[in-house]
């Protein structure tokens, strides 16, 4: 009898607390083995990268050592050295940390700006929408790469943060467009009209009513963008317009492969960085797919 009572109390408690969104995400992750493996791999990589970066001395790593130029992997240098005799493993770790941090910050910053502007443009429509969309069109027609290169050249104190700001200034437009389009479709639905008739203020309708219904598209877009932004950062560094060479980046390491000799004979210089980029991007994409399903009740596996 007592057990029964406890059971029914437990059930009542379970019912009264609908599963939190975090729990749903977790359940979805466990059901999808590929996403779970990706999550484990990505967390391991990030843990190792961020953990060991604490103990590495960046100045020591980027110091040129003429005695060990292009040294193959050995006990002293696990992944060999580059043309300056610098340790590849150390550069790899610090480079991965820099690339990931930059990618993440750009994603968050552009996501925030794009969300706010997209919601406002889509919800109010009319003149506001028109003005915002024309500004976005203008930014989109500017040659992105060229302007980034120009900015990189003219900014006096060029460091990681100015780089993030320059990138974000151009990359928010795509997100704003996407969210505007979804908001336009969403605001025509009756539940938005219902909220209006119930006296809910506009900002509350945008944040509490429309935003949750866009969450799946936002999460998927942000995760995919995270992978993309890491790629853009690496790409710019590869071209020589990303981070300065004194700040290691995955792109810098890959760019050493432009030398045919390095590409053919000295795999340890560029292969680890390329593989790391590939693995990180794949992991992020697989996790993104699982998140996408978790955000939509009809697609869930768990």
């Amino acid at each position: 009898m007592r057990a029964n009572l406890n059971d029914s109390q437990q059930i009542a408690k379970d019912v009264s607390q609908s599963p939190s969104s975090l729990f749903i995400l977790w359940r979805e992750m466990i059901k999808d083995k590929l996403a779970l493996i990706s999550l484990v791999v990505l967390s391991c990589i990030l843990l190792i990268v961020y953990g060991s970066a604490l103990f590495l001395d960046q100045d020591k790593i980027v110091k040129v050592d003429l005695l060990s130029i292009y040294a193959p992997p050995s006990a002293e240098h696990w992944l060999g050295t580059d043309y300056g005799g610098r340790d590849i493993l150390g550069q790899l770790i610090i480079g991965a940390r820099n690339s990931f941090t930059i990618g993440l910050l750009i994603t968050l910053l552009t996501g925030f700006i794009g969300l706010a502007i997209g919601l406002i443009a889509g919800y109010y429509g009319g003149i506001i929408d028109n003005v915002i969309m024309r500004i976005i069109d203008f930014i989109l027609v500017l040659p992105f790469l060229m302007l980034v290169i120009v900015f990189v050249a003219i900014v006096p104190k060029y460091n990681v943060f100015t780089f993030i700001l320059i990138m974000s200034a151009f990359l928010w437009t795509g997100k704003a467009r996407l969210i505007r389009a979804k908001t336009l479709a969403e605001r025509e639905l009756d539940y938005v009209s219902a909220s209006k008739t119930l006296g809910t203020p506009d900002w509350k309708i945008m944040i509490r009513e429309i935003l949750p219904n866009l969450s799946s598209i936002i999460i998927v877009n942000l995760t995919l963008n995270l992978a993309g932004n890491i790629g853009i950062e690496s790409g710019l560094s590869y071209l020589g317009f990303g981070l300065p060479e004194s700040t290691p980046s995955l792109g810098t390491l890959v760019s050493y492969a432009t030398n045919p000799d390095v590409l053919q004979n000295k795999w340890w210089v560029w292969l680890p960085a390329s593989l790391l980029i590939l693995v990180i991007m794949l992991c992020i994409n697989f996790i993104g797919q699982a998140l996408k399903r978790a955000a939509d009740a009809r697609q869930r596996l768990g």
């Binding site: 639905l189 009756d190 539940y191 009209s193 219902a194 008739t197 219904n213």
Partner: peptide, 16 residues
């Protein structure tokens, strides 16, 4: 003044 909407599917927010 309140309103009852035509479509019971789109008039309730699916996320709430």
């Amino acid at each position: 003044i309140q309103m009852i909407f035509q479509d019971p599917y789109s008039s309730l927010n699916p996320k709430k």
